[in-house]
């Protein structure tokens, strides 16, 4: 979500217009020159890129960026990249990561970004800046000396913006993954189980953050109404750790259930968790606690006036 905004801040055409509008004419010309938007240099750079297309593709394909690819694929990707860059330079959009030329190389960038999925550290991230050195060397060999630096600026700008476009794609891919995983996690939210007429259990699993805890509480309370439950069992067997926050949440759920006329039992407290809770000074107050779900269920049955008895006639 952030990345388009980021790119816009870097290359905002409207803001550029504004800058030109408020800056004096001389400064504007100067700005245009250093930005490499001089039409003549633009033309000569475009001509250079087109004339030496095969040389450039050859040196690019041998860079670290493409070594992991098969030669044919690498050549194809380099060719697409170059076509996109020419398009960008012709259209003058070298400082705008959203320019059409960059959009057309998007599949190549996506494939580059996908290859970096292994490491977020950046060490093995495909970096398009490695393309800059060989390209500028070729340009210096061919370009007229007096205009070389302006071509340098223009080509550097293009490749820098290409890098931003690549980063944008990487970031959005990461954001998509996070969103998908969050949705999956919500789907994993714990169901409310009916154990008996009037007895509900909710097995809590994993880490209880505030969102998941809130969802669990709400669904439990709704089910209390829907099923006329008089006993609600919160089973924390699957909860990895109980800190003060989780304990407070359990307590809140228990009190809310009591306000609705249901008695709450917390079950599945393992010995280590019991010790941790004591050391943290957590007091569950009047809420009943049991070691296992079975014990809590037995307690629940006695609350609703049911009695479990061993049928002697069938026992033998």
């Amino acid at each position: 979500m952030l990345c388009p905004k980021f790119a816009r801040r870097i290359a905002n055409p409207q803001r550029d217009d504004l800058c030109r509008a408020i800056s004096p004419k001389g400064a504007m010309e100067d700005n245009r020159m250093t930005a490499g938007s001089d039409p003549t240099i633009r033309d000569s750079v475009t001509a250079f890129l087109k004339d030496h297309r095969q040389d450039i593709e050859r040196v690019w394909a041998s860079t670290a960026l493409f070594t992991a690819r098969r030669p044919a694929d690498a050549a194809e990707e380099c060719s697409e990249l170059l076509t996109g860059i020419v398009e960008v330079i012709v259209s003058g959009g070298e400082e705008n990561a959203a320019a059409t030329g960059f959009a057309s190389v998007r599949p190549v960038l996506t494939s580059l970004a996908a290859r970096s999925a292994g490491g977020p550290s950046g060490s093995d991230r495909p970096d398009v800046t490695v393309l800059k050195g060989p390209l500028l060397r070729l340009w210096h060999d061919r370009a007229p000396a007096e205009t070389a630096y302006r071509g340098d600026l223009l080509l550097s700008n293009v490749l820098n913006t290409l890098r931003i476009a690549l980063l944008e794609i990487e970031l959005s891919a990461g954001a998509d993954t996070i969103l998908a995983q969050r949705a999956q996690l919500t789907e994993l939210s714990t169901p409310v189980i009916k154990l008996w007429d009037g007895i509900l259990a909710i097995p809590l699993i994993g880490t209880l953050d505030s969102t998941r805890g809130q969802t669990a509480t709400e669904s439990l309370l709704e089910q209390i109404v829907a099923q006329h439950a008089r006993v609600a069992i919160l089973d924390i067997t699957g909860v990895t750790a109980v800190d003060t926050l989780v304990a407070q949440h359990l307590l809140k759920t228990a009190v809310a259930a009591r306000l609705m006329g249901a008695e709450c039992i917390i079950s599945g407290i393992r010995p280590q968790i019991a010790q941790t809770m004591v050391q943290l000074g957590i007091d569950l107050g009047e809420v009943a606690t049991r070691a296992t779900l079975a014990d809590a269920f037995a307690r629940g049955l006695s609350i609703i006036g049911m009695k479990v008895s061993n049928d002697e006639r069938n026992a033998g």
Partner: peptide
């Protein structure tokens, strides 16, 4: 349910009051 959650969040646990569904 929503009233119960709100009351608990406000810290109003209505101690000493009987409740039923």
């Amino acid at each position: 349910p929503e009233v119960a959650i709100t009351l608990v969040e406000l810290g109003l646990t209505l101690p000493g009051l009987g409740t039923a569904l």
